[in-house]
Design a protein around this nucleic acid. Structure first.
Length: 355
DNA sequence: AATCCGGGGTG
DNA sequence: CACCCAGGATT
């Protein structure tokens, strides 16, 4: 029996009932594909539902305000996905008048859509024959065929792409793509794969050679950098209203588009006396009539490639004032919940009872 | 080809 | 705690 036949039998019996599998609306399929880039189903499911609810069509998304899109995306990570999603929605609304682009070459031109997502949308929504290569597929194929080249190298990817072009079912390419990804997610898992009752054990070279644990071969990744943030939580109380100063993060650093506090980044965490003698402190806070009312514990925030140690320095000022050298905006603490913020800031604000 | 961009899961 | 997961954009 052909691999795709065995795969389809397995899929028909084992597939999960997931919302975007009940539609061929390319908009909803696109939405799901962007949300589930680097994201496990359990983590992204409620985000998918929120997006479909809040933005039922590509026009609703295109007309939305970027901050409200980011707010819905908050907590999901890789925030450039939200910006690209929004930009692509505007493209589609303008260039395609809302008729969703339907070919691989049109799709891959859109921001946030690369080879994987273009293949996924064109096959799932439009039944075009483009094999997907996500992490699941790379793992499954590298085991079936005992691919010794790293799957995150271009040589390894080319080999797997070649194999997939022969395996894919040309009548039902969308089903084939969904099925092989689902098989990777549920059976051919990274750790403890279910080889004992796998329908492919006879054709799986890795299993036959008792080397399943050796695949996929990967180039190893870098160690995370350590960074130290000193956040300035500048609080003003005016007429029973408390405002705190937020700044929107721009540039190439993490959390682009999200809001946090004015920050002094240091090589380590100097004691407060040292910090307050430094240039940055003087530039940002030197002109303020203020006092440091408290310094938080150290929060440790782990990202894939960065380990961030953070302390929150609360500064209260009797004056109504606008920080001069900081592009920060005053936000009533009752309005904080409408700003998209990183997990770390969210955690702190909850600890302080401000959110 | 190498590096950066989050957050959560697993053992 | 250490380690795993892995698409797209940028350099």
């Amino acid at each position: 029996m052909e691999i795709s036949t065995v795969l389809f039998n397995w899929y028909d019996y084992n597939k999960r009932d997931l919302p975007w599998r009940q539609t061929r609306d390319p908009y909803k399929i696109w939405l799901s594909e962007i949300i589930f880039q680097q994201t496990r189903i359990n983590q992204g499911l409620e985000y998918y539902q929120k997006f479909v609810e809040n933005f039922p069509s590509v026009h609703d998304l295109a007309n939305a305000d970027i901050d409200s899109v980011l707010k819905l995306w908050q907590g999901l990570g890789y925030y450039s996905r939200a910006g690209n999603l929004h930009a692509a929605a505007k493209d589609i609304a303008a260039t395609y008048k809302g008729t969703f682009p339907s070919t691989y070459n049109q799709l891959i031109k859109l921001p946030g859509i690369g080879p994987y997502t273009a293949a996924a949308i064109s096959s799932l929504a439009f039944n075009l024959v483009h094999p997907v290569m996500d992490g699941n597929v790379l793992r499954v194929v590298s085991r079936w065929f005992a691919i010794d080249d790293p799957v995150n190298s271009s040589k390894g990817k080319k080999k797997i792409e070649q194999i997939l072009s022969e395996l894919i079912d040309t009548n039902e390419p969308g089903k084939f793509n969904q099925a092989i990804m689902e098989f990777g997610a549920l059976f051919c898992k990274p750790q403890k794969p279910a080889c004992h009752d796998c329908v492919f054990s006879k054709i799986c070279m890795a299993f036959q050679q008792n080397r399943v644990v050796n695949f996929p071969v990967k180039l190893r990744n870098l160690k995370p950098k350590t960074r130290y943030f000193n956040y300035l939580v500048i609080l003003n109380s005016i007429d029973n209203q408390t405002v705190v100063y937020l700044q929107k993060r721009n540039g190439k650093d993490i959390w682009k588009g999200l809001y946090d506090f004015p920050v002094i980044e240091t090589a380590g965490h100097p004691d407060m006396d040292m910090l307050m003698k430094g240039q940055e402190w003087d530039r940002m806070a030197g002109k303020m009539n203020m006092n440091v009312s408290s310094v938080s514990k150290i929060y440790r925030h782990q990202l894939t490639h960065q380990k961030i140690f953070t302390r929150f320095i609360e500064i209260t000022s009797p004056d109504k004032f606008q920080p001069e050298n900081i592009p920060a905006i005053p936000v009533d603490i009752d309005d904080l919940q409408s700003y998209p913020i990183p997990r770390l800031i969210d955690k702190y604000l909850h600890d302080r009872g401000m959110l």
